[in-house]
């Protein structure tokens, strides 16, 4: 217990940083991922191609390599200087967006085709149909896999520790430097993640219940 109480400041600030990385990346990846899913079901072949290409490239690249690119390779291009924290947010968002895209797209596929036909027959444009009819129904059916994707994102934030962005993944090093018991410290970190994931699971249950509209 003393490992935790003696380093409470370290634990709180590190997990605070983890939460912040997670929250910003979650919002960005949900927006970008939904947009990518819209591209992938678009009637325009070029848009579909772009969406498919993005998912193929980004989903198949290890997250560490995405980080390496934005922290070490991207600055060499000398376009716009970014801080390690920004690089971490960009990497996590772009990477997770590919997974969000596929989750949303699987949701879109669960919406009966008649819903889209009725929208088109009423004169709704593709964007109106997607925004008012298809996506609201698609998102309801993807709450469990979307929660899993978000939990994966939360845990993936620790990859940032290798790239000068201090968060919960760095607690071990700091404890080691101070000569504290690293094993106990790591157990506390693990417990910290369990505590962070629990609200996500709760949110999942709430949405599942609220959105269980009969078809």
């Amino acid at each position: 217990m003393s490992v935790l109480t003696n380093n409470l400041d370290l634990f709180l600030s590190a997990f605070g940083q983890t939460l912040q990385l997670f929250a910003v990346s979650a919002v960005l990846s949900l927006v970008l991922g939904t947009f990518l899913a819209a591209l992938r079901v678009s009637p325009v072949p070029v848009f579909r191609g772009v969406g498919t290409m993005y998912v193929t490239v980004v989903r198949n690249t290890p997250l560490t390599l995405v980080f390496v690119f934005f922290v070490f390779a991207y600055p060499l291009l000398d376009i716009l200087r970014i801080e390690p924290y920004t690089a971490a947010v960009v990497s996590l968002s772009l990477y997770t967006a590919a997974f969000v895209c596929e989750v949303v797209r699987s949701g879109i596929n669960t919406v009966p085709v008649g819903q889209a036909e009725a929208s088109r027959a009423l004169g709704l444009t593709f964007t109106q149909m997607l925004g008012n009819v298809v996506l609201p129904q698609a998102l309801r059916s993807v709450v469990p896999p979307m929660t899993s994707t978000m939990i994966a994102l939360l845990k993936n934030t620790t990859v940032a520790s290798g790239f000068a962005v201090v968060q919960a993944g760095n607690i071990r090093e700091q404890l080691a430097d101070q000569g504290d018991n690293v094993l106990i410290g790591l157990l506390w970190v693990a417990l910290g993640f369990v505590i962070l994931v629990m609200p996500l699971t709760y949110v999942q249950q709430v949405f599942e219940k609220r959105w269980s509209v009969a078809r």
């Binding site: 009966p112 008649g114 819903q115 036909e117 009725a118 929208s119 088109r120 027959a121 009423l122 004169g123 009819v133 129904q137 509209v213 078809r215």
Partner: peptide, 15 residues
Amino acid sequence: RADVGMVFQSFNLFA
């Protein structure tokens, strides 16, 4: 299409 009303066999009301 906005000027052409359509009614489907399976209703297709927005669920």
